[in-house]
Design a binder for these strands. Structure first.
Length: 921
RNA sequence: GCGGGUGUGGUGAAAUUGGCAGACACGCUAGACUUAGGAUCUAGUGCCGCGAGGCUUGUGGGUUCGAGUCCCUCCACCCGCACCA
């Protein structure tokens, strides 16, 4: 029987399905291991060969761990709510629920064709009411909790209310939107509505007026991680800053825990660094500056309080409400004009244009609390409303932005740190002694910071302060295709709906567009009211809502009573190994960590961190092919002759190019334009050019896994994708190389058959040579799979098969463990051969082979002999030869004479089992 | 600008962590078998050189008996952040 992969693969995929081979249950007899893929967003294009890269890697690891005796949870699902499906709905009029369903069916099919060991009984779809009911439930929990800074934990709103009733805000250290102070009496005398408004200042899910990223084209607000370089990540539309009433999640409350938790994680340094950066912790001080001739003061944040004697002016953000207060009559017109200008700029313009310096003087002055000098207060958009206090003390001598501003507007510059000449640029380094700085003169910067903060606190001018760059997550989207908020409004105040009323279903609407009056699409829903009278929230949740806790839901995916049962979460705990794209570095991976920490605080989950080990698989890039049309003709010139002509390169579909040779007939049929095309060939062939680009439809370089599977089989696809190189690395897809892998599998298959393809495995005793080949591979595979070094594992298997082929091995003692070795990588061929070896059932539960050192002992070692570091010849010596014996053998070898002629041996370095180096001068 | 990462044949890549650079594949060359080859098998294949031999891991330097690997300098590319006070 020849290697008929199509038949074999279908057969075993069916077997796995029908026998629920990969369904797992809680089993306290076995250690658990949780392997998770970032679930896909199902799009109309289906999977291309880049998508399964991570899935294959995790599947190999799952199967390996199972062979190692672990109870492996390895689920899959779909991140099905989100913008692209809705944009598609707007264009085609098809309901996103329908298209999503269709796409998911296609994805599931494609995934099954690759032979993944998923427990399909745990499949989740975020847009399914049975699933989003729990997304809504978690939201209600966030709504019902606040964050206690003292304990660094979430606590129930009831407890906060009790405290307010007894003590007011006294002794409360809570994460809040704005600072409030009131007594117990004051609290108790407030109306119900007032109380609720105050509480939303503390809730972890809250509605508030905040500066948001508004994207008019998408008709929605966006979170910070959904905006890159001032445009929306999805679609690339301009984004404006705008103050709006929106739902947010108080992720900032968890800043410290999010930062500290990173240390214990087995994530790449670069990924942890990206997260640290995004959280952006800085330490410094908040300081009040009095406004001259007024009772008011400005609070600023600085990380360089040591330079306060050099603060010669102040700058406040244009969006700060202080601007109105501080602008004097004479400056009013000028300031208004400036505010108008900044508000009309998109984020992109503002970012792109960091060089031009703009700003206006408000007319007011502040008093530097240390120099007592009057310093002008300006407003400029280089100070951001959203960071710190939205106001700064400007120290032009030691901050390059302040320096640029000061020189542009002719403001005073005073050097306060020694160390550089500041006539041309500022000196920003934290090295040097303080000068012109009163009480901190002569101190090093580090010490000066400490001393001045103490002084600031003593004088009650301000306090030490830690700041984070992380912003609260804007959580509402003015879109249709997302989870509805379990919220209704009574007299403008939001109320949560009861748990037993969940899920709040997404209503049907006639058109997926905002209303004429600019309300979100949900406003179109008819008779959609809580208890028939109260307005529901009309926004929906963002894309990351459904993905922030899905890994927990998998643990108990069909539980209708609870999000997850304590039994399930106590057994599966968290994800041991997570694999997915780096693009989720600051979105999903921050939110999921945040939700997990919150859920732990309220007793739902048990581990502080959701994803213990995480690997970012690289991207598979496309390898585009080009044909070269001679300008103004329908004539195409082959790649190596193209320089003789004036040509236009044109993308050609990679599926009609083989090894860079164009299939001319297929090309002619490809488009009517090419029907009569003529060709200038080289050696009778048309050779195409190539380039590495992103894999995309428009570049005609998309390779579909289905077609690879049809041609070579899923096992070949799996092996090939892993053979390309380290998983973390991005690499181009080149179909040429796949032949080698397919050839390997056929060679592997042939080990078990004779020349006439009769199954032929003998029970003769294996020789030492054969055992050595096997055990070497066993050892290497165990090491490499654990390191996720699959490319080297595969090449080791190739070496093994090549060697066994040379030895003409057909012994069961060798060939049986060999099937288990390959089974995580190529499970279909492994199952088939396992069955042919007379075994019943699946190979998936067999113990993975372990090597025995006794077969690996070498009798002799081949020593390279180097003279002055250059290898000249080798000598074969017994493995147990002593250092002296090795040295003697090397030095007395005849071949050495010619290399050391005219010199003397000074030294001989012998590294047993490795090499000899003779130093001669 | 700041932070992180990567540079090795024609191509994808390996190198037991300081010990024979280029394993394993692709591609290419030659040959065998074939009606045929986009099948299979054999041999060769880093570069220069007819050869002896020399050179070679982005550049230049250093440490070492010995460096792809460690240290310093510079260059190129990729990723993240970017008026974050």
């Amino acid at each position: 029987m020849e290697y008929n992969f199509q038949e074999i693969e279908k057969k075993w995929q069916k077997y796995w399905d029908e026998n629920n081979v990969f369904e797992v249950k809680i089993n306290t007899e076995k250690p658990k291991y949780y392997v998770l893929d970032m679930f896909p967003y199902p799009s109309g294009a289906g999977l291309h060969v880049g998508h399964p890269l991570g899935y294959i890697a995790s599947d190999i690891y799952s199967r390996f761990k199972r062979h190692k005796g672990f109870n492996v949870l390895h689920p899959m699902g779909y991140d099905a709510f989100g913008l692209p499906a809705e944009q598609n709905a707007i264009q085609t009029g098809r309901h996103p629920a329908d298209t999503t369903k269709e796409y998911i069916a296609r994805y599931r099919n494609q995934l099954k064709n690759i032979g993944f060991s998923y427990d399909w009984s745990r499949e989740v779809t975020t847009s399914n009411p049975k699933y989003y009911r729990w997304t809504q439930w978690i939201f209600t929990q966030l709504f019902k909790h606040w964050f206690n800074n003292k304990t660094q934990k979430a606590d129930s709103i009831e407890n906060l209310i009790k405290h307010f009733e007894k003590f007011g805000t006294k002794n409360i250290d809570a994460a809040y939107s704005i600072e409030l102070t009131f007594s117990a009496d004051e609290w108790n005398n407030k109306s119900e509505k007032e109380k609720l408004l105050i509480l939303s200042n503390y809730r972890l899910a809250f509605r508030a007026k905040t500066m948001v990223n508004w994207c008019p084209e998408l008709g929605t607000v966006l979170a910070n991680d959904e905006v890159k370089e001032g445009v929306s990540v999805r679609g690339g539309f301009p984004v404006f800053q705008k103050e709006m009433d929106q739902w947010s999640l108080r992720v900032t409350a968890y800043s410290e825990r999010l930062l500290n938790g990173l240390d214990e994680l087995e994530w790449s340094d670069s990924l942890k660094e990206i997260q640290r950066n995004w959280i952006g912790k800085s330490s410094g001080a908040e300081v009040y500056f009095k406004i001259a001739d007024s009772e008011d003061q400005i609070l600023i944040y600085t990380t360089r309080p040591d330079t306060i004697y050099g603060a010669t002016f102040m700058v406040i953000a244009p969006e700060s409400n202080l601007v109105q207060k501080l602008t004097t009559k004479s400056k009013k017109q000028e300031v208004e004009k400036y505010l108008d200008y900044t508000s009309k700029r998109t984020e992109r313009e503002r970012i792109a244009d960091t060089k031009s310096i703009t700003g206006v003087f408000t007319g007011s002055y502040a008093v530097n609390p240390f120099t007592e000098e009057k310093i002008p207060i300006w407003t400029s958009d280089y100070v951001l409303g959203g960071y710190g206090t939205g106001a700064i003390m400007a120290v032009p001598a030691h901050d390059s932005r302040d320096y640029a501003f000061a020189t542009h507007f002719g403001l005073k510059i005073i050097q306060v740190v020694e160390g550089a000449d500041i006539t041309a640029e500022s000196y920003d380094d934290k090295n040097g002694k303080m000068i012109n700085s009163g009480i901190i003169n002569g101190l090093e910067v580090k010490d000066a910071i400490e001393k001045i903060i103490n002084e600031i606190e003593n004088k009650k001018l301000g306090a030490r302060k830690i700041n984070f760059r992380l912003r609260d997550a804007i959580f509402s989207r003015q879109r249709y295709w997302g989870e509805p908020f379990p919220i209704y409004y009574k007299e403008g105040v939001p109320y949560i709906i009861e748990d037993n009323e969940l899920p709040l279903l997404l209503p049907e609407i006639d058109k997926f567009a905002p209303t004429e009056t600019g309300e979100p699409p949900l406003a179109r829903a008819e008779n959609w009211k809580y208890q028939g009278k109260y307005e529901y929230e009309l926004s929906t949740m963002p894309g990351f809502a459904g993905s922030s806790a899905y890994y927990i839901r998998y643990m108990d995916a069909t539980n209708e009573e609870q999000f997850v049962s304590p039994d399930a979460v106590n057994y599966w705990r968290n994800v041991d190994f997570y694999i997915g794209g780096i693009e989720h570095a600051v979105g999903h991976l921050i939110y999921a960590r945040f939700w997990n920490k919150f859920l732990k605080d309220i007793g739902v989950t048990v581990e502080e961190e959701p994803f213990k080990k995480l690997v970012n698989q690289g991207m598979i890039q496309g390898r585009s092919n080009f044909v070269y049309r001679i300008k103004n003709t329908n004539k195409f010139v082959s790649f190596n002759l193209r320089n003789d002509y004036d040509i236009t390169p044109i993308h050609v579909d990679v599926n009609i190019v083989h090894n860079d040779e164009l299939d001319i007939e297929a090309f002619k049929k490809y488009s009517p334009d090419f029907e009569n095309a003529e060709f200038i060939l080289e050696d009778g062939k048309y050779i195409c050019g190539w380039e590495i680009e992103k894999m995309s439809k428009s570049k005609y370089n998309v390779v579909n896994p289905d077609s690879i599977i049809e041609q070579y089989g899923a096992d070949t696809l799996r092996l090939y994708e892993m053979f390309l190189g380290p998983i973390e690395q991005s690499k181009p897809w080149n179909t040429q190389g796949i032949e080698g892998i397919h050839r390997f599998l056929r060679k592997f298959w042939r080990l078990y058959f004779d020349n006439e393809y009769n199954f032929n495995v003998s029970d003769e005793k294996a020789t030492n040579d054969e055992l050595k080949v096997l055990h070497r591979t066993v050892k290497k595979l165990n090491e490499d799979i654990e390191k996720l070094s699959y490319n080297t594992a595969i090449s080791e298997m190739m070496i093994c098969v090549n060697n066994l082929g040379t030895l003409k091995t057909n012994k069961q003692e060798i060939l049986e463990p060999l099937v288990i070795l390959i089974s995580p990588f190529a499970p279909h061929i492994a199952e088939e051969l396992w069955q042919k070896l007379g075994k019943s059932g699946t190979i998936a539960d067999e113990d993975y082979p372990v090597h025995n050192d006794k077969y690996l002992i070498e009798a002799t070692v081949n020593y390279p002999v180097a003279i002055n570091g250059k290898t000249r010849f080798t000598i074969e010596l017994p493995a147990d030869a002593s250092k002296d014996e090795i040295e003697k053998a090397a030095v007395s070898d005849d071949r050495i004479a010619k290399y050391i002629e005219g010199t003397q041996i000074r030294k001989v370095i012998v590294v047993p089992k490795r090499m000899v180096n003779v130093v001669a001068k």
